[in-house]
Design a protein around this nucleic acid. Sequence first.
DNA 1: GTCTATAAACAGATAGAC
DNA 2: GTCTATCTGTTTATAGAC
Lengths: 189, 189
Amino acid sequence: MSTSERLIESTRELLWERGYVGTSPKAIQQRAGAGQGSMYHHFAGKPDLALAAIRRTAEEMRARAEEQFSAPGTALERISAYLQRERDVLKGCPVGRLTQDPEVMADEALRAPVDDTFIRLRGRIAEVLAEGRDRGELAAGLDPVATASTVVAVLQGGYVLARAAQSTEPFQQAVTGVLGLLAGHATAR
Amino acid sequence: MSTSERLIESTRELLWERGYVGTSPKAIQQRAGAGQGSMYHHFAGKPDLALAAIRRTAEEMRARAEEQFSAPGTALERISAYLQRERDVLKGCPVGRLTQDPEVMADEALRAPVDDTFIRLRGRIAEVLAEGRDRGELAAGLDPVATASTVVAVLQGGYVLARAAQSTEPFQQAVTGVLGLLAGHATAR
DNA sequence: GTCTATAAACAGATAGAC
DNA sequence: GTCTATCTGTTTATAGAC
């Protein structure tokens, strides 16, 4: 892997583990096995390197999610597969965690890929939900757009609860709970 | 307000705005209008001051939530009132944001109040949901424990989506969506 | 209790040799 | 392209005067 590639990958890891504010150029260089001169030769500075790293992480996440949604199965099966796929729950979401970084949110260029990731994700899930509703797999009264935000929020909030507890249990519960509601366990009354 | 109080309050604000890693003792002192000597006289250091601030924020949040849950009304009304009460959505949750701080999570003393806050919150919501189910207000098949985690996750994830978008819209959608599911809009099929 | 002085280590670069 | 040297400011304190 080229030095430039190693710098980007190291930055991706550190942004995930420690966030933007908590990541120093020095730490990036050490993890990449590159000197200072190298880093400043390939990138203008920390924000520039972070932008490359964030863009790549966002794109990877988008592609990964699309795999689940374009797979065969009912709407509920696809949403379920997406929520329950293998995840590094205790590490949290590499994109979602950036929303807690004041310097990322303050920089339009850095925030844009984060914003875009969630806009697309919510939109794609809304499509799947609308499809399921129209096919009669889901309730006729279901609001696809609002519910899509709910699904993504359960995921992002599940990470928060798991990290607080240092256990995947609350994440699993949150996912189980929303899938139960979607499946209409609330029907019997 | 005493100097000690001002230091704690300034720390609470800064932890909310910038997190633990992003908050320096100097910034705390400046906002509190206190000198370095003052801060180190009242507190052993940054972790000690942060502990006092986090404990207070956690306790305040717990008390605030309890107000909604002990109010009169059906289970759904109380959950709805809790989710829709006035919130500083774009600032996010002052407790939830700490889960993204590697140094807070690494320090058992600092993580404990965060963990405790969500354990209690999930437990209290599970009680309200169980009550609603037993009274026939909610579906008989509803899982109170799992659904309580879902409700809290929607809140925490809603903050994440709102910050990414710099708009309260996705937060409102996520809340609307989960309330619709709880209310059984999924019933008609 | 509060203030100023001092300090070692780190953050985030820039400059120029190789 | 990579390396070392240098630099300004910040971080997180400690020491001691007032």
